Amino acid sequence: MNSSEKAYFATGCFWGAERRFWNIDGVIETSVGYMGGVRPNPSYEQVCTGVTGHAEMVEVTFDPTRVSYRRLLEEFWVMHDPTSLNRQGGDIGTQYRSAIFTTSESQKLQAEVTRDVYQAALTREGIDQIVTEILSAEGVPYYLAEEYHQKYLQKNPNGYDCHSSTGVAFPALAN
């Protein structure tokens, strides 16, 4: 039985995010692409102009018996600044928005719960509200990005990693 699930995360520039996810034990495969826009089969150049409305996404295929969706979410929240609207650091535009596309009701609930847990931690630090979109992936096509973007930081180890963050760790679970 194939026990893999898919998760979709937008954290700004997708190069660094993909590497963060592929380094997690239990992640089977990652790819980068575009979701949430209006134009079918958009090119990177089109997405970069903001006209297509797509976000730069990482598709994560994972084995839920080895890594939980919650663990992926915890990584998602701290690998970028989810309070930054339509930008991450110097990358500005709707294609760099923070978003989660969920593939099940369970994923949606976990995304909302972890958002609220992380928001509480941010609020304690005097940091703004999370602006991450949590949307259903149902009926939303995922378009694979061009080949040169796939595993970009594996091909270009000193390439632009582009990640900013709030600097606030995800709170540990109380036992």
Rank of each mutant, 00 (worst) to 15 (best):
N2H: 12
Y148R: 10
S43V: 11
A17H: 04
K108I: 01
A55R: 05
N156D: 09
G53A: 13
K155C: 14
I134V: 14
G26D: 10
R115D: 01
T83W: 01
V27T: 04
R39T: 06
W77M: 10
H163L: 07
Y142M: 14
P171M: 07
Y160N: 09
I130R: 01
Q154G: 10
M35C: 00
G90R: 12
P64I: 05
Y34K: 14
G16E: 11
I92S: 00
S136M: 13
D161S: 05
C48F: 04
E147S: 14
L153N: 05
T123W: 15
N41T: 08
G33S: 13
I28K: 02
V47Y: 02
A174T: 03
A145P: 02
Y44H: 12
S3V: 09
R115I: 01
M1T: 08
G89C: 00
E18G: 06
G16R: 03
Q154F: 12
P42N: 11
F14H: 04
A169N: 07
E56I: 15
N23W: 05
N23G: 13
S104C: 10
Y44K: 07
V67W: 11
T114C: 10
T123D: 10
R20G: 04
E56N: 10
H149Q: 15
G90I: 09
D91I: 07
S104R: 00
E18C: 09
G126A: 05
P64N: 14
T102H: 09
M79V: 02
G159W: 12
T94S: 15
Q110D: 07
I134F: 06
S31K: 14
A174K: 04
T102Y: 09
